[in-house]
Simulated scan of single mutants.
Amino acid sequence: MSFTAWLFFLPACFALNMAPGPNNLLSINVAARHGFLRAFVGGMGRLVSFAAMIALAATGLAVVLRASEAIFFLVKLAGAAYLVWLAIQLWRSNASPIGGTLDSDASLARIAWRECLVAAGNPKAILVFTAFLPQFVDVAKPVGAQFGVLGASFLALECVAIALYALAGVYLGRFLTRATVRRWFNRTCGALLGAIGVSFLLVHRA
């Protein structure tokens, strides 16, 4: 991979990082309810799934996932089911005061685990690593090192995206002083997560 190809990769990659999706929506919701730091640190959980996907793509194992309709369908189904479950939990959640006592659902471990599972069940993320990243790899050169550079760049830009969405959530949190507004904010986030989950079922392999 040439330096020029890497420069072309960065803006295209960042556009993918910043695209509205279930993980970024989670960051907004967590930041609005529990603050920037909890949303940002918890958001690192998604990097575990993304790093695993990059490793699979680099070793060629992702080809199996991409080629198998059954496995891809199971991933879609699991991801959709989990997002719908999260949507229901948000819809039914209590409108606890912003900055109030944190419950177990707001622990960093729980937030990070939720981010990890949402990322792992996202078929669009799988397609990014099996179809998008390889476009920038020069097969005439060592592939592993190139995937390492591309993967590290993706994860670094993902950290920036997490921070930006968390900041957006903190800004929105200023308007959630009334319990009714907080309740409808949670329900809106839940409805969007549910819609994204259903849309997962419409994703097809290239």
Rank of each mutant, 00 (worst) to 15 (best):
V30C: 08
M1A: 14
R178H: 06
N17Y: 04
L77C: 06
W85A: 07
A78P: 00
L127H: 00
G194R: 12
A166W: 01
A87F: 07
L56N: 08
F36H: 14
A125M: 06
Q89T: 05
L117A: 03
Y165A: 08
A58I: 07
T101K: 14
V30F: 14
G148T: 15
L167Y: 01
A161H: 10
F14P: 03
L61E: 08
T101H: 10
W184H: 09
A152S: 15
A206E: 03
V128M: 07
K76W: 00
Y171P: 02
W91P: 06
W91K: 10
F129W: 03
L83D: 03
T177M: 06
F132R: 08
I28Q: 12
S2V: 13
W113N: 04
W184C: 03
Q135K: 13
A67D: 12
A39N: 04
T59C: 07
S2P: 15
F154V: 13
F14N: 06
A109D: 07
G21K: 15
A62Q: 05
S199Y: 02
V143G: 05
I111E: 04
V137G: 00
G121Q: 10
H204W: 02
A70V: 11
V143Q: 14
V137Q: 01
T130G: 03
L37S: 11
G21E: 15
W113D: 01
C13K: 01
L7Y: 10
Q135V: 08
I28N: 13
G121R: 11
M18S: 04
R38S: 03
S96W: 11
A163N: 13
S107Q: 04
I88L: 09
C13L: 02
S27E: 07
A70Y: 09
A78G: 00
N23Y: 02
I88C: 04
S2I: 12
A206L: 05
S2F: 14
S107H: 03
N24T: 10
A15L: 14
L157D: 04
V160Y: 01
W85G: 02
T177I: 10
E158V: 13
L10S: 01
R205D: 02
L26T: 14
L83H: 05
P22K: 09
S49T: 10
G100S: 13
W113P: 00
I111K: 09
F136N: 04
L202N: 04
T59S: 15
I162V: 15
G148N: 12
A32T: 07
L56I: 07
G173N: 01
F154N: 03
V30D: 11
G197S: 08
L157Y: 05
L202F: 12
S68R: 05
L193K: 09
A112N: 01
F50M: 13
I162Q: 07
A161I: 14
L102P: 10
L167I: 13
A55K: 06
E158P: 09
S68G: 03
R33H: 06
F185I: 08
I88P: 00
L176Q: 07
L83R: 12
A52W: 11
G100K: 11
D138G: 13
L47Q: 04
L157Q: 13
G60T: 06
V181P: 00
L16W: 11
A131F: 03
R38G: 00
T180C: 06
F3S: 12
A195N: 02
G148Y: 10
L16F: 11
K124H: 07
R33W: 01
A120Q: 05
G60F: 08
R33V: 03
S2E: 14
G45I: 13
A119E: 06
L10K: 01
L117D: 01
